[in-house]
Design a protein around this nucleic acid. Structure first.
Length: 248
DNA sequence: AAGATATCCAACCGCTGTCAA
DNA sequence: GTTGACAGCGGTTGGATATCT
């Protein structure tokens, strides 16, 4: 029953990858593509487990990786996506072409956390540190009610990043699947959020845009009546506008 | 210059959901 | 339906490097 083991762990290398191992892995994937990680190490002549090969390829060797420092725009986009999604690094990475989840996670823990703390913002809750968490409830009910009345789109509950994550994930898989009553049932976060472009414009098709896209469009949600967005599926824009959020 | 401390980041670990047998 | 491996994810670790004293 079940499958055979992916590799014999007793005979696999661990630790830092050598140049030769990198070369072998890259050469193999260039020749055969990203196929079955299970059989790859043996086929490529590597004494590594498939999991390790996958990680090395995804986080370091992939040719489309964007090396180098994060831009200010990327910083802000990460912060805003994190406020929506929580520690869903893979989803956040999905919106930052050329960046890996591991890279973003590391960057968050080493730079952005500190940056937010220096601004007096709790990096976990994205709320001011000096406020008592127990006394803070974010209520977007008014905005949600207005949105519902005007059918302006779905609303997220900030405390439920999983819902937002699921939505974005679904958006990525089925971009055309919104709009027939399938919107999220997250009533507390008004999605009238503005988004502005990330920095990797070169990797994306040009989009005519007068201003940042609204967040509804960014998630592939039905367009609101006053939506002026011309296109969206890739979070081209990066500026969420929390002005409509109402704090108690 | 040398040791201590802080920071960075690649890689590992363990868990979960999915899928094949 | 059950079992167990796979793929993928987030959390954590530890070695390398940078900075401070």
């Amino acid at each position: 029953m079940g499958r055979s083991p992916c590799c014999e762990k007793a005979h696999t290398n661990k630790g830092a990858w050598t140049k030769e191992e990198d070369d072998r892995l890259v050469a193999y994937i260039k020749a055969h593509g990203e196929g079955c990680w299970r059989s790859l190490p043996k086929a490529a002549g590597l004494l590594r487990c498939g999991k390790s090969c996958r990680l090395r390829w995804i986080n370091y060797l992939r040719p489309d990786l964007k090396r180098g420092n994060f831009t200010e725009e990327e910083d802000e986009l990460i912060i805003k996506l994190h406020s929506l999604l929580g520690n869903k690094w893979s989803l956040i990475a999905g919106r930052l072409p050329g960046r890996t989840d591991n890279e973003i996670k590391n960057y968050w823990n080493t730079h952005i956390r500190r940056k937010l703390l220096s601004r007096g913002i709790d990096p976990v809750t994205h709320r001011p540190i000096n406020e008592h968490a127990s006394n803070i409830t974010i209520s977007f009910e008014a905005a949600a009610a207005a949105a519902a009345r005007e059918e302006k789109g779905a609303v997220f509950r900030l405390e439920e990043p999983k819902a937002a994550a699921a939505a974005i994930s679904r958006d990525q898989q089925n971009p055309g699947d919104w709009g027939q009553g399938k919107a999220l049932k997250c009533p507390d976060l008004n999605l009238e959020l503005c988004i502005s472009p990330p920095c990797q414009e070169e990797t994306m098709k040009p989009v005519k845009r007068e201003a940042g896209l609204c967040f509804s469009c960014s998630l592939g949600l039905p367009k609101s009546a006053d939506c002026k967005c011309s296109n969206f599926l890739g979070l081209r824009t990066a500026m969420l506008d929390f002005r409509s959020l109402e704090m108690k």
